[in-house]
């Protein structure tokens, strides 16, 4: 937590203690390998804490829980494609009430028909937003995870961290998401050190527009990556150690104006 604190949001001592304890309870109750804090979404009246439970396969066995107070956790069901389509039309902040129904006006761009008005439950929106943020910003340093011959994604126990010069370059970080197409990997660097077990993910340096990720060297050589589509997402890695992680603390809204702002 200390490493991402330069972004301005930190957890208070109280929150830290509550979360630490409730994560352990959550892990044991749900028989997960590991439960880690994913982030905090700031609502108008209250905030959502979100933790991610990981099973054996780091990429597939994911469970996401949310809580308003850090103690009572609810499982966040995987989002459906139907809601994912609606979410970009939702404007405005999260309210902090999971049962709140928000009106969505879906603009029909193609047929010039009438705009439809539908309702989306805030819980569903939360689930969709978490999925979207994960899809866009979840990252790992290259080499930190392995693809086993059985097709499982596991932590690389012999990962020793990136060198400092590698760590300041964006192409040494990979999107931690299932690669959608095989063709996405074609642009892999034509380098001698390409390894099928390591390079099964896309590098984040190909994201559009250029400059939507920024690399900064903070104190004590901590490398901090920020994503500008989702301000509030901070990723850190300490070169030459296996420490890396990321945290999202923000309003849960993408910056749609990014192309104008860089």
């Amino acid at each position: 937590m200390n490493f991402v604190s330069t972004c301005g949001h930190i957890l208070s001592v109280e929150e830290r203690i509550i979360l630490k304890n409730s994560c352990i309870i959550l892990r044991d109750e749900n028989r997960l390998e590991k439960v880690q804090l994913w982030g905090k979404i700031l609502g108008l009246t209250s905030n959502y804490f979100i933790v991610q439970g990981k099973g054996k396969d780091l990429l597939k066995d994911n469970k996401i829980f949310y809580s308003l107070n850090g103690i009572d956790w609810q499982l966040l069901l995987p989002t459906s494609s139907e809601i994912l389509e609606k979410v970009p039309y939702i404007r405005g902040r999260f309210t902090g009430d999971p049962s709140y129904h928000q009106n969505v006006i879906i603009v029909d761009w193609e047929d010039e028909g009438e705009d439809k008005q539908e309702q989306v439950k805030e819980e569903d929106r939360l689930s969709a937003i978490v999925t979207l943020i994960d899809r866009d910003t979840a990252a790992v340093p290259r080499g930190a995870v392995l693809l086993t011959p059985q097709g499982e994604v596991i932590r690389n126990r012999s990962f020793e961290g990136l060198s400092f010069s590698e760590a300041t370059k964006l192409h040494s970080y990979l999107h931690f998401r299932p690669t959608s197409k095989k063709s996405d990997l074609k642009h892999l660097r034509p380098q001698a050190d390409v390894d099928v077990a390591l390079d099964f993910l896309e590098p984040i340096s190909n994201d559009v527009p250029q400059g939507c990720w920024s690399v900064q060297v903070e104190e004590f050589n901590t490398i901090v990556l920020r994503n500008w589509w989702w301000p509030g997402m901070t990723f850190y890695h300490i070169p030459a150690t296996s420490y890396y992680g990321q945290l999202y603390i923000g309003s849960g809204e993408p910056i749609m104006d990014l192309p104008f702002m860089l």
Binding site: N2, S5, T6, G8, H9, I10, S12, V13, E14, E219
Partner: peptide, 15 residues
């Protein structure tokens, strides 16, 4: 501010 969950880490504050 740290109690509130806003702020910077202690090293930076001191600097």
């Amino acid at each position: 501010f740290e109690q509130v969950g806003v702020g910077l880490n202690q090293n930076e504050v001191f600097q």
